[in-house]
Amino acid sequence: MQWDQAINEIEGFLLWEAEKDRTRTRAQAFCAGLPWLTDPQRREVEWRYCQEQRDTSRAYLERIAVRSAALRTEYEGVYRALRRRLITGFLSGTVAVAALVTVAAAGLAVR
């Protein structure tokens, strides 16, 4: 379990770094369309753009995480119910077959 958690954390870190890089690239492209900005203004706009986009991305990812946890709980419940039904059906079938074999054996013994 520790390896899975470590891998998930590394993957999350790498995905977040990639998101930050995409944000920087989009901010630079946005500012490229504003040629009248001075260098300090361009840096400020890029910084604000990146900050806003990261906040939006973080909120979006948090909503996804909450929804994923809810779905996982829901699906685990459905899986447990299906597993119970399958086991119940299997056991019922086994009891029925055992009863039929017993009746058949008793019928053959009587003859």
Rank of each mutant, 00 (worst) to 15 (best):
R72K: 04
V45G: 01
L86Y: 08
T73V: 11
R67S: 05
A98P: 03
A96N: 04
S57Y: 04
V103Q: 07
F30P: 01
Y49V: 00
G33P: 00
A105Y: 14
V66T: 10
R67Y: 10
G77W: 00
L91C: 05
F13V: 14
V95D: 11
R24C: 07
S68L: 11
V97R: 01
E76N: 11
A104P: 12
K20A: 04
E44C: 11
E52P: 00
V103E: 01
M1R: 14
A29K: 06
Y75F: 06
T88N: 02
E74C: 03
A98F: 11
I7L: 13
N8F: 03
D55W: 13
D21I: 12
V103R: 02
A98Q: 14
K20T: 03
T25E: 02
Q5V: 11
L108R: 11
Q28T: 14
Y60K: 10
E52L: 15
L71N: 09
C50K: 11
R42K: 14
G12F: 05
W47M: 08
E62D: 02
Q28L: 15
L61I: 11
R72V: 00
R43Q: 12
D39M: 07
K20F: 06
E17V: 06
E52N: 05
Q41V: 01
L108K: 13
E76G: 03
E17W: 08
E11Y: 15
Q28G: 12
E9V: 12
W16K: 13
R83W: 07
V110K: 09
V45D: 13
G89A: 10
V110G: 06
Q51S: 08
R80H: 03
D21T: 01
I64A: 05
R72I: 01
Y49Q: 03
R24Y: 02
T25C: 09
R67V: 04
V110Q: 08
P35C: 05
F90Q: 06
A98Y: 07
A27K: 01
V97S: 00
A106Q: 08
I64Y: 06
T73I: 07
R67H: 01
V45C: 02
G93L: 15
C50Y: 01
A109F: 15
R80D: 01
M1N: 15
A81V: 00
A18F: 11
A105S: 14
I7F: 13
E19V: 07
A29V: 03
D4K: 11
T23L: 06
Y60M: 04
L14G: 14
A6Y: 08
E62I: 09
A29F: 05
E11Q: 15
I64E: 05
L71P: 00
R43E: 10
A105R: 15
G12S: 09
T25S: 13
S57D: 08
